[in-house]
Design a binder for these strands. Structure first.
Lengths: 121, 121, 121, 121
DNA sequence: GTGGTCTAGACCACA
DNA sequence: GTGGTCTAGACCACA
């Protein structure tokens, strides 16, 4: 379920975050589903538990999962349109577009980039 | 020319980078134009020379300016389409769009964000 | 582990970057391993924290490490062939070879230089 | 003779240096040939005289040309194998190769890069 | 605790 | 004069 590319230059914890988000958006992981424990997932993926821990902490901070002491981590509510997380993502996007513009990326090119990112998969 | 907002939460050196890029894209600063010296600009803006130095070194790494020891700093060529810098900016944009999508930002919202960033000013 | 030559003409922050890269390529530092904190390393090496900070920020820009505010700095994935970083390095190399050629360095001499650089150590 | 690409992101003064070196290595410019004056060349190329001045100063420093006050600039001796300039170029090359190696460029790849740079043209 | 930004200096090589 | 490196601090947000 959480198949990652350990050889990619994308940090493992980033991949895990993306993967989890994908599974949530696709409906595979539903609200309040239990996430695998840090140790279990670390063993299954063959990576350092600290790495998993970091991804979980990041996701908790981003409101993607929540943890209950002694019970584990669980999937939080699916991001909705006026969620804090979605707005933060839109804000980040705005900065990226603005900087791309400064570096000479044309509006049309930016639009193509958006389309490419949404068509993929 | 390099008016900055010293009270902004945006780091001074980031503001200086953006401002310089804007001036270059607007044609106010042309290729090989001399930039003010680190010390001069620091004095004029009322900030520490190290802060200006950091901005200049960042810009040199990004290929925005080049510096000649003992002579000063100069404007590098304006970024062109197909340029390394422009492509890197487009690449960064793609990642930002992709992540925004993962967080549930709709394609239409992304489009609006792009338009907003290009309309400004 | 990070033994540096403080008396060398090579800047301390450059030495630290090279050393870190060497440790990563040698497998001593693995992906997601925690780097010593800026202050800890500064104390251990007997240099100013700003100097370490500069090295760390350079390395983060180059994709060698990544830092999480409040948590620390971590080793990014080992550069792979076809990586952006590796390609950028090859690009830089091409320019250096081309310029050396312009200055009258013969092909054989260039080859020797390459062998010398790869034999060392 | 000194046709440059004013739209390239390579600094004009760098292009002028490279072009001059090429012309010298190709035998088009011979030792003690007079270089065009800074003002003449600036007018012919349609660039700022400061840019030409910078290129000339760099080339004089590198021993590619020499200037006689009141008479102008002249082509210096063609770089020979044990020239200071050639050795400096080889030294620069060594550093570039070493850094490329650190970033994960394989020896074979480095060799290919060398061959590509020498085959071109 | 962690990294990120900034001030206020010093000294260096290069021209 | 110019940029480049470095020391010795301070204060900030984030966890």
């Amino acid at each position: 379920m959480f198949m990652l590319d350990l050889k990619s230059r994308v940090p493992i914890y980033e991949q895990l975050k993306s993967k989890t988000l994908e599974l949530i958006m696709a409906g595979v992981l539903a609200t309040d589903d239990k996430m695998p424990s840090v140790r279990t997932l670390a063993r299954d993926l063959g990576v350092n538990p600290n790495t998993i821990q970091k991804a979980y902490q990041d996701m908790e901070k981003d409101g993607i999962i929540y943890s209950v002491t002694g019970k584990g981590s669980f999937v939080a509510a699916k991001p909705q349109d006026n969620d804090v997380a979605v707005n933060a993502a839109a804000e980040k996007l705005f900065k990226a577009v603005y900087e791309a513009r400064l570096y000479g990326v044309e509006r049309e090119t930016a639009m193509e980039v958006v389309n490419k990112a949404y068509e993929k998969e």
